[in-house]
Amino acid sequence: MRQIVLDTETTGLNPRSGDRIIEIGCVEIVNRRLTGNNFHTYINPERDSEEGALAVHGLTTEFLSDKPKFAEIADTLRDYVKDAEIIIHNAPFDLAFLDAEFDRLGFPRFVQHVAMVTDTLVQAKEIHPGKRNSLDALCDRYGISNAHRTLHGALLDAELLAEVYLAMTRGQNSLTIDLAVPEASAANTEVIEVATTTEIIVLQASAEEMADHEALLDRLDKEAKGSCVWRAAITN
């Protein structure tokens, strides 16, 4: 299946309070190889970025003023992602913004245009329970250089995430690849079945950690002037 690694940059944290997408970056993977057939665009959100968001991505209102509006790139984006598996880190955040933009244009939700959505943050938490699983942390863990990532950028982050995804999921294909033999020698090859078990360690947050988490969400609510995406996802 064709896979698309997708990332966005936005004016803030909450599409419900009017925050908009300002950049989309997509990287295509076919048969676990980067094809170079990428999609990237800046978008004029017709509003200023929140101060905190601007510090993250550095895309000023002046820089974005002559860029296309989302409505102008929507059909091209839909054609590009159509029927592909979409890979996103912390997918609920990006999907909330994409759905808000699609809703403004009267389009069905984003997931209805694609085959499926894979959240690499969920995958990483399953593979590395109890550890930091931000994109930067995963780059360090898998030896992927992100030294050039001084500011967040949708295409740069999608490129890094594509490398992280391929490294993180390499084991899923390793048995098939490593055990493949030429037909001529297959008859003389003894097949050994290996049984493996994986114990999943679940770490519960302490009361102090839960209190810190709630305090962080309260701060995000205040900055977003509404309910942040993460809290909205929990309550829904």
Results as ranks from 00 to 15, higher is better:
Met1Arg: 12
Gln3Pro: 02
Thr8Met: 04
Thr11Val: 13
Thr11Ile: 13
Gly12Asp: 01
Leu13Asn: 07
Arg16Phe: 08
Ser17Pro: 00
Gly18Pro: 10
Arg20His: 08
Ile22His: 11
Glu23Ala: 09
Gly25Gln: 05
Glu28Gly: 02
Ile29Gln: 03
Val30Leu: 14
Asn31Pro: 03
Arg32Cys: 12
Leu34Met: 09
Thr35Asn: 12
Thr35Gln: 13
Asn37Cys: 11
Asn38Ala: 04
Thr41Ser: 04
Ile43Lys: 00
Ile43Asp: 00
Arg47Phe: 05
Glu51Ile: 07
Ala53Asp: 07
Ala55Lys: 15
Val56Gly: 02
His57Lys: 10
Thr60Asp: 11
Thr61Lys: 07
Glu62Arg: 12
Asp66Pro: 03
Lys69Thr: 02
Phe70Trp: 04
Glu72Pro: 06
Glu72Phe: 01
Ala74Trp: 03
Ala74Val: 00
Asp75Thr: 04
Thr76Trp: 09
Arg78Ala: 06
Asp83Met: 05
Glu85Met: 04
Ile88Tyr: 04
Ile88Leu: 12
His89Leu: 04
His89Pro: 05
His89Ile: 05
Ala91Gln: 06
Ala91Phe: 09
Pro92Gly: 00
Pro92Gln: 01
Leu95Gln: 04
Ala96Tyr: 11
Phe97Met: 00
Phe97Cys: 05
Leu98Val: 06
Leu98Ile: 08
Glu101Met: 05
Glu101His: 01
Asp103Glu: 15
Leu105Gly: 11
Leu105Thr: 11
Gly106Val: 09
Gly106Met: 10
Arg109Gly: 01
Gln112His: 13
His113Phe: 11
Met116Gln: 02
Met116His: 01
Met116Trp: 00
Met116Cys: 03
Asp119Gly: 07
Leu121Gln: 15
Gln123Cys: 13
Lys125Ala: 11
Glu126Ala: 13
Glu126Tyr: 11
Pro129Tyr: 10
Pro129Glu: 11
Arg132Gln: 14
Ser134Pro: 05
Ser134Ile: 11
Asp136Cys: 08
Asp136Leu: 12
Leu138Ser: 03
Leu138Tyr: 09
Cys139Asp: 07
Thr150Arg: 14
Thr150Asp: 15
Leu151Arg: 15
Leu151Cys: 10
Leu155Phe: 00
Ala158Asn: 06
Leu161Gly: 03
Leu166Ser: 10
Ala167Ile: 08
Ala167Asp: 10
Met168Ile: 10
Thr169Asp: 11
Gln172His: 13
Asn173Thr: 14
Ser174Glu: 15
Leu175Met: 13
Leu175Lys: 07
Ile177Lys: 14
Ile177Gln: 14
Ile177Gly: 03
Ile177Val: 15
Leu179Val: 08
Leu179Thr: 15
Leu179Asp: 14
Ala180Asn: 13
Val181Thr: 13
Pro182Met: 12
Ala184Phe: 09
Ala184Tyr: 06
Ser185Gln: 12
Ala187Arg: 14
Ala187Asp: 10
Asn188Gln: 15
Glu193Thr: 13
Val194Tyr: 03
Ala195Cys: 09
Val202Gly: 04
Val202Tyr: 14
Ala205Thr: 09
Ala207Asn: 14
Ala207His: 12
Ala211Glu: 15
Asp212Pro: 00
Glu214Cys: 08
Ala215Trp: 03
Leu216Lys: 14
Asp218Trp: 02
Asp218Cys: 03
Asp218Lys: 03
Leu220Cys: 08
Asp221Ala: 06
Asp221Met: 05
Lys222Ala: 15
Val229Gly: 05
Val229Ile: 14
Arg231His: 03
Ile234Ala: 12
Asn236Trp: 07
Asn236His: 13
